[in-house]
Design a protein around this nucleic acid. Structure first.
Lengths: 198, 198
DNA sequence: ACTGTCAAGATACGGCCCGTATCTTACGGA
DNA sequence: TCCGTAAGATACGGGCCGTATCTTGACAGT
């Protein structure tokens, strides 16, 4: 289409240019306004080039986001479980804000038909946070002697991320008040009742 | 379009026939397959008739669901907070299953642009369950002397519904295991840590 | 019974985007 | 240099959108 004088791109250079265009379109028009045609035009390429790589818009967007949010930044060691947890939820909020409410809902929608795709999505983005809960925050707390391994369950590991996600899917944002009430009224009490001294 | 010999419907009779058609289309084709054109054809009417009532597909579906799920059945009194809570989550699961994962995501998507519409959706369907938590389950528990009013917070009232919704939005279903782990590892412990004897 | 009003119902339209098929053309490796 | 492969352009049928227009039936008031 465009790029008349330029040389023909291939491989990774092309792919990055496309993902760049995906992000630009997504940022300007939002998830609903994101179209294959628009991306192709913006990237100076054509639809078949996109469909050779991704078969749906969401798949493409997931690739784009995975490319933009490579690694989760670590959570600072605040010295207390409460502080760490607040910091984690803040990180979660920022990561979700980058994606946006509509896009998250859209991804879940696409992925709801295909359990395998769900694994990719949840395993890739959400589990990163869940793992951080377990491998960083709770581990620090165990080392401080506040928790024991046995007091933790898979459900408790998921809990912070689940509540943050729910809040974000409903309201498109996570207020400071939401963060503190989640931590102080749910997470910490649930741990205490299992014997933790947090 | 169709209904050649029949008399022309008006008002409520027409409206109910349309909502019937919405439900039929939705059940057969799912949320993504639901279209204004399809509904119009199935109801034996035409698109303008639909657009005179609802401006979007979701708005129409919400009206349909509100019509189909009028009142929440009450939760049986099992004699214990744990039993009541399990029963509530089971009711929540059934209500959500009727709607379906994709439709719930779709509704949230449409509603994400319009805070006012969100109030309608959440206030109408979700709050029904939240109110049941407060006005039925917790109240019974308070009467049994297990809880006091002061131990409850808005966040704790929302908690059961929030966790159920999150589970359903992610997986499209709420397993028995999910129900019990939510109750036994999160909700009850969180209450106990605040002084409840449940 | 007559008539005016209003919504039902039918149809058609431009538009957007989908997903794919086809063809030419450039790149890059052997 | 030649050849395979993928880029890039284009065109297509199709579906659904949302709206404008028109006719016709139902109902109410007199």
């Amino acid at each position: 289409m465009q790029r008349k004088g330029a040389s023909r791109r291939r491989g990774e250079a092309l792919e990055l240019a496309i993902l760049e265009a995906v992000w630009a379109e997504f940022s300007e028009l939002g998830y609903l306004g994101l179209t294959m045609e628009g991306v192709a035009k913006r990237a100076g390429t054509s639809k078949p080039v996109l469909y050779r790589r991704w078969s749906t818009k969401v798949e493409m967007l997931i690739a784009c986001i995975a490319n933009r949010i490579p690694q989760a930044e670590s959570v600072p060691d605040t010295g207390s479980l409460r502080g760490d947890m607040v910091a984690l939820l803040t990180v979660a909020r920022e990561r979700m804000s980058v994606i946006g409410q509509t896009a998250m809902l859209g991804m879940l929608t696409e992925v709801s038909k295909d359990p395998e795709a769900r694994e990719v999505l949840l395993g890739g983005l959400a589990n990163e946070l869940v793992n951080m809960v377990y491998q960083v925050i709770y581990r620090r707390s165990i080392e401080r002697g506040e928790l024991t391994e046995e007091q933790l369950t898979p459900r408790l590991l998921r809990l912070p991320t689940d509540l943050a996600r729910n809040e974000f899917l409903l309201f498109g944002t996570i207020s400071d008040e939401a963060v503190t009430s989640i931590v102080d009224e749910v997470i910490l009490p649930a741990l205490r009742a299992r014997g933790a001294s947090v």
